[in-house]
Structure formats: C-alpha cells, structure tokens
Design a binder for these strands. Structure first.
Length: 645
RNA sequence: GCCGGUGUAGCUCAGUAGGUAGAGCAACUGAUUCGUAAUCAGUAGGUCAGCGGUUCAAAUCCGCUCAUCGGCUCCA
C-alpha cells in the first residue's frame, strides 16, 4: 500500500493506511512524542491524518518553522474555550494565527477589560494542563449548522453558510467539551501549547472587516515555543518602543504635535534641519532625472475638484475655506494643479514625457482614529511628481522610476522594502487593452527588480493599476512610502491633450509617483530605523565640541569656525560641567561626533574624537578630522543603524 | 469614523474611605575648572486636558467635549 518518502529521501512502505503519528512511532518513540502534525505532499495535516497513498511526508515537531503557526492557532482555540467557560454569553467568530501570535474575535455585549485578560490567561493555562485531546470530526454541512445554531453560535452558522466553500468538507475540532468549526490542522493535545503565550491587548474589530457590520471584541495574544522565546519577544517589543519616532521626536527636540492642530507637526529647528536636508537631496535627484519643479496654489476653487472627481469622492476628507460666495478646497493633492500647468499652451508628442515635480503642502482631513505621529498626519509634503506620457512611454518611464527609487532607498540603507502590485478593480475606467498594457508594464518593471512582490488583485484604483513600496516601523506596522500609479482618467477629465505624430489630438497617460512619499512619514521611518541616530549628512548637529575647562574656550571657538566653514553643522559646549556629563548628554542626543578638547589637545593643536556609540577614535589633527567628516558627509555614508546605550 | 484604554510640573511617573498636590530628571541660582555616559547645595515650578454636575468639600464620583495610545475601517 502506501510507500512513504521521508525528507532525507529514505522510503518506507506499509501494508495498510498509516497515520502521521504511527509513521513517527515507526521511526522512533521519541519522534512520536514530539510530533505535532505532519506535512503530506506539502500540505499541513493533523497527526491523526491517515495516509493511504504514496506520499512525501515530513513529521512536524516544535523545531519546525510550521510549529509556530500551529501553536498560535491552537492558542486562539484555547483562548476561545477559556473565554466561553468564563463568559458563557459570548459567541465565537474567527481566530487565526498571525505574525508573532494570534487573535480571536468574540461577539459579546460587554467589552473585555485588561483584568479580564488576566483571568482568561489563567483559565487558558488551566485548559493546557487539562491535557485535552484535540479531535477532528467531519460533519454534514446542514447538521453542523444545526449544531451551532442550537448552541446560539450564529456567527459560526454564517461562516459555514458564507465562508466555507461548498466543495470543502466541514470539519469540527473538539477539545474536551468545547468545539469549533475549523479547517485545521491542530496540535494533538492542548498540553502541547505549553506556557510560551501571553494575551496582549483588546480591541474592536468589525465582523468580516466591514465597517457596516457589528463591532466585535478582539483579543490579541502572542505565542511561542517556550517561555524563553516569549520573553525574548517581549523584550524586543520593549526595545522597539524606545525607537518610537513620537518619543524620539520629543526627546531629540525634532518636532511636536499639540491639541490645537491635531495631525499636524510643529517642526523645531533640529527636525526642520532634517526636513530641509532630505528635501534638498531629493530635489537634486529629481532634477538630475529630468523632472521640472513647479509650484501650484494652496487653495483652489471647488469647481476644479468637482471636475477632477475628488469633490464627489473625498469631500469629507477635504478642508475647505470660504470667502464671499466661493468655496475653496485646501489642496489634498497636487495633480489637478499640475494638469493646469500642462494645459497651458499646446503640447506635442515631442514634449512628452513631461515630468512635473512639486513639494506642495497638502492637507487631508484624515479620520481622527487613524492619526499616528508623523506616519499618518493631516498636513504633509510629498516628493510628488506627475509624468505625462504616451501609452508607449509607460514601460520605460516605470522602469526609470523604479531604478531611481531603489537608488534613493539604498542611499538611506533601506533593504527590506515591501512591494505590492495592485491590478484592475471591477469598477474602472479605460478599456481592457489599455489596462493590459499598463499592468504588463508594471509587472515587467517589477520582475526586473529581482525582488519578491505581492499581487493584490482588484486592489488598483478605478483609474489605473499601481505599485506600492512600503517599509515597517519599529513595531512592525507597514507604511507605504513610494508609489507609482497609472491614471487613465484625470487627464481626460481635466482636458489634457497632446498632438500626436499623425496630427490627431490624444489624451496623455498620467503617472502619479513618489519615492519618499510624505517627507513627514519618511522622517518618522528614518527615526525608527536608526533609533534616532541618523546618518551624518541628515543629522541636525553633526559634531559637538566640548571643553574640559574654560581655558580651552577660545581654542574651541576657532576650531568650530573652521569646521563650520567647511559646511559642517557644529555646536559648542563650553559649560562648566564635567566631561562625563557632557558626553552622556550629547551621546543621548545622538550627535555623531563628540570632540573633546583639553589642555593636551590645545597644546598639540589636536582634538580627541569619540562617536555617539562610544567608539574612541583617538586624537587627531583638525585636518584629519575634517577629511573624515567632510567625506562621510558629502558621500552621504550610511553606517550600521545599531545604536545602543 | 467605530471599539477600548489613558490625560497630574518641561519629561517619566506617585497620589490608596472625596478633606484644596508629591518624587526623580530637566530648569534656575551658587559653589566647584574637573580627561570620556550623571559634581554638590539651594530655589522655583501645577486652573490635576476642558466644560458642566453631585457634595460643606472633587485630581479622586457622574455626564459631555477634546486630545492621545492600541486595534478595526479608510487612505485620492
């Protein structure tokens, strides 16, 4: 009967169908004990799964990467059981494993509190100790619906009706008295979950992710192989919180946000220095790559927004201002303005591609619940540009853009860029031939990067497909920075045309694109990526000159002048404080170079150089220091982002 | 916008039957002139987010509003 091929290539044959667990036993009792599940021909299955045909099989133990998902999914089930034992009036809905943990959504009138979490968690530990075997049962669809209806689990009935495809069998997993409809697989026994889990937070979540539906109570948890792994993870979280740009923004005196202007940053001089540096950098990049910088009005009459289609769709998210009889919108984006510039005079195909860039300040009235430091803000400036081109120019323009984008990201030391490709939605403008061409162009460009990218079918805008380039913040949340979006709609709506080779009037294609995205968000990501210890060329104060005693004041001032003349941003600390105190303070302020001047240095015309991370570079002449700093500054060197104290 | 948490000095946080606020750091003043991550002493600093209510009395109890944090939805 079944011949089973194991991962090492060895084969075993059996006379009768054999379960994963029995297979493991035949290899060794130790392995049998460690068996969590199996992988049969690449599909994860329960340990009790019976193999009746030839197959490639791997035994999954705690050490396998798949184990974590199993543990986490089980943790969700055990949590649901615990919740229903403590609060019988609660209905269960769904509870998947997620990155680093799991959650379960419950339907219950009273929201859970933090205290409830402790209760639930200890009940979970009790259930783990109960050592309950987890068993899979196959049910008839209608019988399963009746079962859950009888128990008042109306959400589960809906899941069986709407979510589980007709082609799939309905499986129910049982642990003790408790059961749940679930695809599985699961661990053999609740005790296999162990102790490496913790409930972390409660939150609201809409049923089936739709804001028109009821709000459920979601409990999040994290789960690991053992308590040691759990502890490591929790420690990492604590460390990550120290990098939070909102916290560092305050302690490093970069910016603040206050009640009277929610979602809008007050940039302090130090933060603004970073802002300007960044803008200067990208402005020069764009110029070199054939972009022309323009500037359009901050407020524009609503009629233009009506024509562009924004008024219909985004009226609620636009700030408006009125004067006399007119209503103006404070611009939420630059593109309609750029089309106005494009429309001045007659454009020929010879003018294309035309790339218009603008660092325009945009305002969007983002819903209050979505604001998040600099990452999601109501007033921002993008490194925005619009490329007007012919259909034939789409591919070369997209390619050139992607090259430029990765060149820029490399300059900042970002290597883990997340790429997502969103294709045509159901409701769209433009004919399919055009979409074919556009999607093909984006996909070709994507494949040429050699990087992985995620397809998001149907997620494109109604006016065209798009690629998004995202990075993670210190807590692993994903934020979009760059994007390139094709637009088949707006140029037509706003009357943009060009004269083609055959003398006919055609509508150009417009590409919306940004690399940094909003400068605000980009700075937020930078701060978290570098834990505030930004590369030399971006940092507000590049070097701090400090004296041992007041006798070196004059000498120090002379050095500062020389460094400043070379374009370096240098400050003096002549305070009557001990050198240890000064070093601590400026190290905490993440100033890259700490320059100490005492009697010895003054006598020899030198400085003692130390970095913010505590590295002692020894004593050097001012020329040597200048060479070091000027090179690092003008070459925009990026160093290892590790910073610790 | 929705669900839940939080809001006390510049920052981080105490404040326990309701009886008109406290620490550390920072700031300021003075002393100390010192060699690589915190020198000592003193001083000052608060409409307890805002508005309203209960009470002889509210940071504390109740209501509303705002902001903020964590999720969800949304993101041109």
């Amino acid at each position: 009967m079944p011949i089973i091929t194991l991962p090492d290539g060895s084969q075993r044959s059996f006379d009768t169908p054999i379960t994963v667990l029995d297979l493991a036993t035949s290899i060794g009792t130790g392995l049998a004990k460690a068996t969590l599940a199996g992988k049969v021909n690449g599909n994860l299955v329960d340990a009790t799964y019976s193999i009746d045909t030839n197959a490639t099989v791997a035994i999954i133990t705690r050490r396998d990467p798949e184990a974590l998902d199993l543990l986490r999914h089980d943790a969700a089930h055990v949590m649901a059981q615990a919740v229903q034992e403590i609060y019988p009036d609660t209905q269960v809905t769904i509870g998947p494993a997620i990155e680093n943990g799991f959650y379960y959504d419950f339907a219950r009138e009273t929201p859970f509190t933090t205290k409830d979490l402790e209760l639930i968690e200890s009940k979970m530990r009790e259930i783990v100790k109960r050592n309950l075997p987890i068993k899979r049962e196959i049910w008839d669809r209608n019988a399963a619906k009746e079962l859950f209806a009888k128990h008042g689990e109306h959400y589960k009935v809906q899941i069986i009706e709407d979510i589980i495809p007709e082609s799939e069998e309905v499986s129910i997993y049982r642990q003790g008295e408790w059961f749940d409809v679930c695809r599985g697989p699961h661990l053999p026994n609740t005790s296999y979950l162990g102790n490496g889990f913790k409930l972390t937070k409660v939150a609201g979540a809409y049923w089936r992710g739709d804001s028109n539906n009821a709000m459920l109570q979601r409990i999040y948890g994290t789960a690991w192989r053992d308590t040691k792994e759990l502890k490591t993870y929790l420690h990492q979280l604590e460390e990550a919180e120290k990098r939070d740009h909102r916290k560092l923004g305050r302690t490093l005196d970069l910016f603040h946000i206050q009640e009277e202007a929610p979602g809008m940053a007050f940039w302090h001089d130090k933060g603004w220095q970073i802002y300007l540096q960044l803008q200067d950098y990208i402005r020069n990049k764009l110029k070199k790559h054939g972009y022309r910088e323009v500037h359009t009005p901050q407020i524009i009459d609503r009629t233009l927004w009506e024509r562009s289609g924004h008024w219909d769709k985004f009226r609620q998210e636009m700030f408006i201002t009125e004067t006399e009889d007119k209503i103006f919108a404070i611009k939420p984006m630059n593109c309609p303005g750029h089309i106005q510039i494009y429309n001045q005079g007659i454009k020929s195909h010879r003018d294309l591609p035309l790339r218009l860039a603008e660092f325009g300040s945009c305002h969007r009235n983002e819903p209050s619940g979505t604001l998040h430091g600099l990452m999601r803000i109501r007033n921002f400036v993008q490194d925005d540009a619009h490329i007007f081109c012919t259909e034939e120019q789409i591919l070369p323009e997209v390619k050139a853009f992607m090259e430029l984008l990765f060149e820029v990201y490399k300059d900042f030391g970002f290597d883990e860029v997340i790429l997502a490709f969103s294709t045509r939605p159901e409701k769209r403008v433009g004919d399919d031939a055009l979409w074919d061409k556009a999607e093909q162009a984006l996909e070709t460009a994507l494949n040429q990067t050699g990087l992985n990218w995620k397809l998001q079918p149907g997620e494109g805008a109604f006016y065209g497909p798009k690629i998004e380039f995202s990075l993670r913040d210190c807590l692993s949340r994903i934020w979009q920075l760059g994007t390139i979006q094709l637009d088949f709609s707006m140029p037509g709506r706003l009357g943009a045309t060009y004269v083609a080779e055959d003398n006919s009037r055609k509508t150009p294609v417009m590409l919306h694109r940004a690399i940094l995205g909003s400068i605000e968000r980009f700075i937020g990501i930078l701060i978290e990526h570098y834990a505030g210890a930004l590369p030399l060329w971006l940092v507000p104060v590049q070097a701090m000159l400090m004296t041992i005693t007041n006798n070196q004041d004059q000498y120090c001032q002379q050095i500062a002048q020389r460094l400043t003349q070379q374009g370096l941003r240098v400050e003096l600390d002549l305070r009557n404080e001990k050198i240890g105190y000064k070093i601590r303070e400026h190290s905490l302020a993440r100033i890259p170079y700490l320059l100490v001047v005492g009697e010895r240095e003054q006598a020899n015309n030198t400085l003692a150089v130390r970095t913010r991370s505590g590295e002692n570079l020894g004593t050097m002449s001012i020329d040597q220091l200048l060479e070091l700093l000027v090179h690092e500054n003008t070459a925009r060197l990026v160093k290892n982002p590790s910073y610790s104290i």
